[in-house]
Amino acid sequence: MKATADLDHEDTPKLSIEKGEKNMTDAITIHQLTKTYLSGTVALKGITFSIKAGEFFALLGPNGAGKTTAINIITGLANKTGGDALLFGKDVVKDYREARALVGLVPQEFNVDQFEKVSKVLYFNGGYFGLSRPERFNRIGRLLKDLSLEEKRDTKFRELSGGMKRKLLIARALIHDPPILILDEPTAGVDVETRRFLWDYFRQLNRQGKTILLTTHYIEEAEELCQRIAVINKGEIVALDKKQNLLALLERETMTLHLKRKIGRIPKQLQKYHPQEQDAIITIEYNPQKEEAQEILDAIQAAKLPLLKIETSRTTLEDVFLHLTKK
């Protein structure tokens, strides 16, 4: 597989910023954001992207890529070193109060008072975001119901199971019904059933109009939920595109020919497809947009190989991801 140097064929937000326009329909605008921790670790090397209102966007990357760092800067938990982060045009540093009111954060780590009751956690957080008491009680009832936590209303945080703790973090992020929801690995440590349930819930929130920024290293999660995906690695965005384009860009099918015996030499009919031979297995990679599978099959037949079986497989987003981040 050959890497394409520039995978980002969209208009990046830096263009609109450089022209001095503030695109008000962008829910999140990140421009040349850099972060160097006091320890000297360079966590972000100038990342740029923007997320439209109503979009479901994934920031996908391996451990230590800088995902949480980016989110912490957006939500006021970390100081940026350079660049800008805006939420609906509000600067997260200069207009921090307006910006923070627009976003709910589900953090990667549990950051809740261990001894506080579920309903009290939500009650106080609703207050911090300026909700009146009746509004808070209203939202608490609704969220506990939506997330099936009603029975745990009076349970202390530390007495919840891991999955329930995650759900409480989600309820807490939604207490003030923010237009932007940021999910930092929201399904870490939950069982399959709960994960499916949460995915449905996120999709439902997105349909109701919430802009969602999801970070994950589960490719399946990004593939399942998101419309666009940015791949981040070592503090840099290495790819950003619609999910389908990201796949198509590196789309490959692989045909694997299992032979009865080793043949030692690639038959000339197959040479134009650059096959790889190892023991009694020949693999042919091809781009289904350019080459016809039938054509290859005909060539195989013409070569009269001692075939045992033929398998084909498609690249997954996982392969794309591994390919992009292995450098």
């Binding site: 939500t75 006021g76 938990l77 921090y96 109060r97 307006e98 923070r100 009111a101 976003v103 954060l105 953090p107 780590e109 549990f110 950051n111 809740v112 008072d113 261990q114 506080e116 106080f124 957080n125 911090y128 975001f129 300026g130 807490r172």
Partner: peptide, 17 residues
């Protein structure tokens, strides 16, 4: 304690000055 448990972040992300 709120720094240690992390719940100090609850009011750091909120619109309180």
């Amino acid at each position: 304690i709120s720094k240690f448990q992390g719940n100090i972040q609850e009011y750091l992300v909120a619109p309180v000055s």
